[in-house]
């Protein structure tokens, strides 16, 4: 069981490495959006500090939404996805492997870059820590839920917009808890409650979305 998971993760990481440009596009988008805000709203430190968690979280969410459409697209186009559906291994594990690899190449870099971008907004040390932690818990949930949308809109024209409409309602709670964690920490309430809720979002996404994605893929491939 673990063998197929590792095989799929390795395959997708190698593919991502061979088409590095795609990965850098997502990262560049995240950095550009997050960097334009301080320039746009002016150098008022208090305002920037208040905005920072929201801006960084929205940028991370949009970066995920933009790139998740490609999760199954290439495999669908060249017939590999068909072969995955005909594997003797459970499709849910293959899906989980693909989402894991996707998070490692798009989600994890966002988590690692966020502290650096936080400095641009003059976020204090403690808040940066909470922000990174909230992104580390939130981005896997974004990737998992995005997988369902990507599978449902596979092969559709204008799939990107439809995917956004389908997935945004599920993303909103994660955005609220994620950005709220930093705000709560700054207000002295402690980020614990928000982070636990984020962890709950992640775990329920982990429990449900590989199955939902696998079912959606079978429907899309008909």
């Amino acid at each position: 069981m673990l063998k197929i998971l590792i095989a799929v993760v390795r395959r997708d990481l190698l593919l991502a490495w061979r088409r590095r440009a795609d990965v850098f596009t997502t990262l560049a988008f995240f950095i550009i959006v997050a960097s334009l805000f301080p320039l746009g709203v002016g150098p008022e430190p208090n305002l920037l500090r208040t905005m920072a968690p929201g801006v960084l979280w929205v940028s991370a969410l949009l970066a995920t939404l933009l790139s998740v459409t490609r999760l199954f697209a290439a495999d669908y186009a060249d017939g590999t996805l068909e072969q995955m559906l005909l594997s003797t291994e459970p499709l849910t594990l293959i899906v989980l492997g693909k989402v894991t690899a996707y998070w490692l190449v798009t989600g994890l870099p966002l988590v690692l870059l966020a502290p650096l971008l936080g400095v641009q907004f003059d976020l204090p040390q403690g808040a940066i820590g909470v922000l990174s932690l909230s992104l580390a818990l939130g981005t896997p949930a974004l990737s998992l839920l995005g997988g369902i949308g990507a599978a449902l809109t596979l092969g559709l024209r204008g799939g990107g917009v439809l995917l956004a409409l389908l997935i945004l309602p599920l993303y909103v709670p994660i955005l609220i808890f994620g950005a709220g964690a930093v705000g709560a920490d700054a207000a002295g309430l402690g980020a614990g409650a928000h982070l636990l809720l984020l962890a709950a979002c992640f775990l329920s996404a982990l429990a449900v979305s590989p199955w939902a994605t696998a079912a959606a893929l079978r429907i899309s491939m008909e």
Partner: peptide, 15 residues
């Protein structure tokens, strides 16, 4: 018990 080869080759350009 089944092997299917479809229209598409399922061959990755990058590999």
């Amino acid at each position: 018990e089944l092997l299917y080869l479809g229209h598409a080759n399922a061959v990755k350009d990058e590999f």
